[in-house]
Write a protein that binds this DNA or RNA. Structure first.
Lengths: 339, 339
DNA sequence: CTGAAAGCGCTTACAG
DNA sequence: CTGAAAGCGCTTACAG
């Protein structure tokens, strides 16, 4: 039976080698003779020895911990991403230390201190913006930061997003092709790059087609705000015949409001979301939406941080992944387009 | 400008005190004169010093890290719990190291090793079972384990759940009071205590009322399985007039199937879930469900681990929190009951 | 209250 | 390949 805590020294004693030898056997790439390896492995097994990650971290300067700043978990996009991120990182020998953040910018500032206290090797920040001051501090500390699903103004940070401007454009073009005349936009939070980019793409495509949006309002990425916006839009004499909503999470609220008014999404009013979270495909919503390829975004983010950690040279990078419009029944499908 | 890494020795030098003094100033409860505190604080501020948590962990034996084993994040119950857990722990100076687990028992076994490598102070395992062998190992290592939303056969682990047997009973009584004649149960995974307990309570209440369930099947906590079960139940000549589903996540799938068949939940067939995740109150579902009070479950779990960590004596405990039936429109409401 | 010193469990030059 | 030794950044008795 293994005892509470076994150290490399105890293994060394049992194996009849030096403590350094034990360490080498457990350090990938270090040299040890086959005989030593065998003796050590046997002793370690017998004692139930496993290297103490924290001690290793102290001397090597690598904790194998990635700080993940996350918020807004009500939006199904993030739990899904979180799970994938954790799996991908686990597979490469890292683990995630979670920091739940307030959704505002200033909330993150205090977190960085704590993050650094734990000597994390890198930081992935999902769904939060970061001041460039913060970026600078992390950089000075030599900790790579990757923004996930959020861009950044100014230099300093890597980030991975989907092609949001283009996504917004695609949605507008789809809606225009569908013959909609009064297209409204309940935008993603205009304090975030994703919200702004999607809106910019949407407006650009409208302009290019010589159309003006029926209305453009900020849904703040909030169910409540989006629902209020939708109610507002529906109450006038003429109402929109299509609404592009800045993300799926808000789009569900909008659909709920539409139905509350006795209208049918996809017939009376087309609704298009952004993300393609699992719920979007469920029977109750069947939401047409611009899919953000989470798996590829996750892969990119993981590659980015780990590359910056493991090969110090690796420069920052901005990765943009293209999304695809997923056609379902919440929006009228233009003739000739196939589901 | 702070430099990359500042140590207590550097602060000591600048402040003109010993390194031990610096350490004391940053150790709550350690004694230092007002003058020393001031000199040290000033120097620390100037240099941008913060204690290295890992170094502190090494010597003190406390990492202030809680390992969280989690899976099944598609079920909105868990992201919600995760966020609350993280917030509660953060507030008390701990952080969560995430381990995503396969939903099976054996998957967790390997994780425990990794968990212990990081010298976590405690473990919270959500939505996973644990072999008693595993429990024993953690115990031997002196690491308290708390099962969240899962019970355990045999001794060794603390756990917090809602009152599942009673919850199942309440649902049955509600359905019986509603005058339903053919009540089916798509149960939670029978490999889990929650699934078994809810079913047991349900069956007991049925028996007590002299009723036999229309059918009882295992939904495995899976959308797909639950949907298949629902289709099965609906296709015969006589179909159930009520279905108690083992959790909300499956209940949504069941409602989707019911509507696909042109039936209306709450009119043609009553559906009752378990959990009361946020989605249950959204317009598209309005699911009647037995609420698990996540906030109280989280508080209890956090208290339990921290107590076991901070006062070594604290014994294991099994905490059961009562839930409440939330009446919405997915199920017929018995006369006299109020929403 | 305060400093010198030992030690937490490792990794990593440094000699051999 | 291998061992002795230094050192990672702290906390904590131990004297004073």
């Amino acid at each position: 039976m293994a005892k509470e805590k076994v150290t490399s020294a105890e293994v060394a004693a049992l194996a009849g080698v030096s403590q350094s030898a034990v360490s080498r056997v457990f350090t990938p790439g270090a040299s040890a003779s086959a005989k030593t390896v065998e003796k050590v492995r046997k002793a370690a097994e017998q004692l139930g020895y496993r290297p103490n990650v924290l001690a290793r971290a102290m001397v090597s300067g690598r904790s194998r911990i990635i700080g993940l700043v996350v918020a807004y978990l009500e939006n199904q996009f993030y739990p899904v991403a979180l799970e994938m991120l954790s799996n991908a990182l686990q597979k490469r020998g890292y683990h995630i230390l979670i920091f739940t953040a307030p959704n505002s910018t200033d909330g993150v500032d205090g977190l960085l201190e704590e993050l650094m206290d734990y000597q994390v090797d890198g930081i992935i920040a999902a769904s939060v913006s970061m001041s460039s001051d913060l970026a600078a501090r992390a950089q000075r500390a030599g900790i790579p930061v990757v923004l996930f699903n959020r861009g950044q103004d100014g230099p300093g940070l890597s980030h991975v997003t989907s092609a949001n401007v283009e996504g917004g454009r695609k949605v507008a073009e789809f809606l225009i092709a569908g013959g909609h005349e009064r297209i409204a936009h309940i935008a993603g939070w205009q304090g975030s790059s994703t919200g702004r980019d999607r809106q910019a793409g949407f407006l650009a495509a409208m302009r290019a087609a010589g159309k003006r949006p029926f209305a453009t309002v900020d849904g703040m990425y909030s169910r409540e705000v989006a629902a209020a916006c939708a109610r507002q839009l529906l109450q006038g004499g003429t109402r929109p015949d299509a609404i592009f909503v800045g993300n799926d999470h808000m789009a569900f609220a909008v659909m709920d409001v539409i139905r509350d008014q006795g209208l049918v999404p996809g017939q009376d009013i087309s609704v298009v979301g952004y993300d393609d979270v699992p719920l979007a495909s469920w029977g109750a919503y069947r939401l047409t939406t611009l899919r953000q390829p989470v798996n590829r975004m996750v892969e990119a983010a993981v590659d980015l941080v780990l590359r910056q950690i493991e090969e110090r040279d690796a420069a920052q990078d901005h990765i943009e992944i293209e999304g695809e419009l997923i056609l379902r029944s919440s929006a009228r499908i233009p003739e000739g387009w196939t589901k």
